[in-house]
């Protein structure tokens, strides 16, 4: 079996077999990151452009390190340095990039569907590093990788996701990914953060955090974006913490061996209590570690997938 996709745009276009293949490949990559010389020649001569139209530190760094460990040449451009600020359209910008023959373009963009828009127009592979509220496939895949590593499986697990589901591409991709792999996903948040028809993605909406985390194997907290307060989504961080923050007491409702996840960056004391974030069940930093291996796997597979696709 081989990876047949030119691009990685979202989780919904992947089959469970695709996801398993990516996770298996990522596990293999993980070992490279533990070596004294953390570099393999796999993607030597390949050019990867990191095109970030939204601020990002950890995701960009993670992609950057992943590409370099595979010996690819990496060029990074961001909103401030791109022609977008000069009024160029997105398609023109990426068409210009394409003319310089990169092999993979990694894009983060504030508009949902932006990755699909450019992938339709471009020959190089496109890896979506987050598009608007739509998808963040590598985050979801690294989350699944971390869960599989800790629990030995994904199927049959109970996953609780708590936070701003409406404005989270991580939530959408994870609801999609975990349900696709046979887990049960429960979500909860204030009513302002639950979008219409979210159940149609396959999750259940719990009335409160207590029932959401009940017997969960995985408790995933989402970042509360303070700037969202101007959208009148919640009255105060204080009230949010008291109603939806993950405290030790609430975590006690989950299974004894439940793990705690967070895509970062955390607001300590708001959506997650300090003691939980740093507690023994927290795998938050392991998510970051796995992120590098997972992105190495994605680069490796789409580079190959493109090659195979060219033969058709």
């Amino acid at each position: 079996m081989r990876f047949e996709h030119k691009d990685l745009l979202d989780i919904s276009s992947l089959s469970p077999q695709d996801i398993t293949m990516i996770l298996d490949t990522a596990e293999g990559m993980k070992e490279i990151n533990k070596r004294p010389v953390k570099k393999v020649p796999t993607l030597r001569g390949k050019t990867i452009v990191l095109f970030f139209q939204e601020p990002s530190t950890r995701t960009k760094l993670s992609f950057d390190i992943a590409a370099k460990r595979l010996s690819a040449d990496v060029i990074s451009i961001s909103t401030g340095s791109s022609s977008i600020v000069k009024g160029e359209t997105l398609i023109d910008t990426v068409k210009n990039l394409e003319s310089m023959s990169p092999d993979i373009i990694v894009m983060r963009h504030s508009s949902s569907g932006a990755a699909q828009l450019i992938a339709r127009k471009l020959a190089p592979s496109v890896v979506n590093a987050g598009d608007g509220l739509h998808a963040h496939p590598t985050q979801s895949l690294l989350d699944m990788m971390t869960v599989r590593e800790k629990k030995g499986k994904i199927e049959g697990l109970k996953i609780a996701i708590i936070g701003d589901i409406a404005h989270s591409r991580v939530a959408r991709s994870n609801i999609n990914g975990f349900t696709k792999m046979g887990a049960t996903v429960n979500v909860t948040a204030p009513g302002t953060m639950i979008p219409k028809g979210i159940e149609t993605l396959g999750c259940h909406v719990a009335p409160d955090i207590e029932s959401c985390v009940e017997d969960a194997d995985v408790v995933m907290m989402l970042r509360i974006q303070k700037e969202r307060q101007e959208n009148i989504l919640f009255p105060s961080e204080r009230e949010y913490a008291s109603l939806f923050g993950l405290t030790r007491e609430r975590l006690a409702r989950a299974r004894m061996d439940a793990i705690v996840m967070h895509p970062g960056p955390m607001n300590r004391g708001v959506e997650i209590a300090n003691i939980v974030a740093d507690g023994e069940r927290s795998v938050i930093l392991e998510q970051v570690t796995n992120g590098v291996a997972l992105r190495m796997a994605v680069f490796y597979l789409v580079a190959g997938g493109k090659k195979y696709a060219d033969k058709d």
Binding site: S112, G113, H134, R169, P195, K196, G197
Partner: peptide, 13 residues
Amino acid sequence: NEGITATRLGIKG
């Protein structure tokens, strides 16, 4: 339109 399709696509409704 605010609804299932918008939720799936991550587009504000």
